[in-house]
Simulated scan of single mutants.
Amino acid sequence: MEILFPDCHPRLHLFSGALPPGNYIRFDRRSDLKPDILGDANHLSEFFGNWEFGSIFADPPYSQEDALHYGCTLINRNTVIDECWKVLHKDGFLIWLDQVWPQYSKQKWKLYGKIGIEISTNHRSRSVTILQKVS
């Protein structure tokens, strides 16, 4: 994320899991992973009402099987994407890693790019969707 968008500060990493501390804020709902901020991404704007991020990276559980494996529940993708829009700077970026293309409002988001990833864990395809906030 830092390489793609070096000037987009501050950075938020949702569903950060066990990532080491870095040049971003780690946000997760699992306290055992010791994120920088503990919370539910379905209610992101409640945690960051006065913040504006330059970029948000999201790597949610892709399926019910993944959620069980990681000890969490599935998210509401549409809700989380709307919440990300609320806390991004004007023209900020959402980088969304998933097995599906996320649905988004063209009034709120501009499609900046898509990257397909053919091989991953269990040989599942994934995609990176890059959305830019439109005000």
Rank of each mutant, 00 (worst) to 15 (best):
F93I: 15
P102G: 08
R26K: 08
A67N: 11
E83M: 01
P10V: 08
A67Y: 11
W85C: 10
D7V: 10
R124W: 03
S63L: 04
S135N: 05
D36R: 03
W96I: 03
P6Q: 07
S105D: 11
N42M: 11
V100N: 07
D91H: 12
T129L: 12
E83F: 00
I117A: 14
K110N: 14
H43N: 15
N42A: 09
P6T: 06
D7P: 03
I119T: 15
D91S: 15
R26Y: 03
M1T: 11
N76L: 02
G17S: 03
G22Q: 01
G71R: 05
Q99V: 07
E83T: 00
S127T: 15
I119V: 15
N23W: 02
D40M: 06
A41F: 10
S105Y: 06
L4K: 11
T79M: 11
H9P: 04
K133Y: 09
Q103A: 09
M1C: 11
K108G: 03
I117T: 14
P21S: 06
R126G: 07
W101N: 12
P10Q: 06
P61A: 00
H69F: 14
L14T: 08
A58L: 05
S127A: 15
N42F: 06
G39S: 04
N42T: 09
I81L: 06
L74E: 03
V100G: 07
D28K: 07
Y62S: 10
C72S: 04
T129I: 10
W101R: 12
P61L: 00
K110F: 14
G113M: 08
R29G: 12
I119P: 04
G71P: 02
Q132N: 06
N50Q: 15
R77Y: 08
G54N: 00
L19V: 04
F93E: 13
